[in-house]
Amino acid sequence: MAEKIRILVGKPGLDGHDRGAKVIATAFRDAGFEVIYTGLHQTPEMIVEAAIQEDVDIVSISVLSGAHMTIFPRILELLREREASEIHVIGGGIIPPEDSEKLIAMGVGAIFGPGTPTGDAIAYVRNWWQKRAAGAQNA
């Protein structure tokens, strides 16, 4: 049986806008990924714990509350603490370009802003997956 891309889609923070998360979860499913959807109001701790138990390849979170500069770094930090840094982190939401750049410098793989076609995110995930598989073979 072929390996499946497993991806966690979560929505940290207090705001209740989960439409974006649902849209991307559905798009990922239709692309053939296994999507672990954790729902609203997740703390970074909950997201990281779920990512580990579910053995996901990627964590994809949506932040609209403006708290992205605390939430993303915290998730990266927790993943490092749990020795799970190979889990890739991507995100979306309302995030100014200058913050996006900072987050990517910290280790976030990609940030997809509002209006990004879901196809872009899917292509990014597939591309990352293939690169990782090639890297594993060369190792």
Binding site: F28, D30, V35, T38, E54
Partner: peptide, 14 residues
């Protein structure tokens, strides 16, 4: 699992 795409949304954790 969707028989069409092979993908799935696993939402029990909610």
């Amino acid at each position: 699992t969707s028989p069409f795409s092979g993908g799935a949304i696993l939402g029990d954790r909610v």
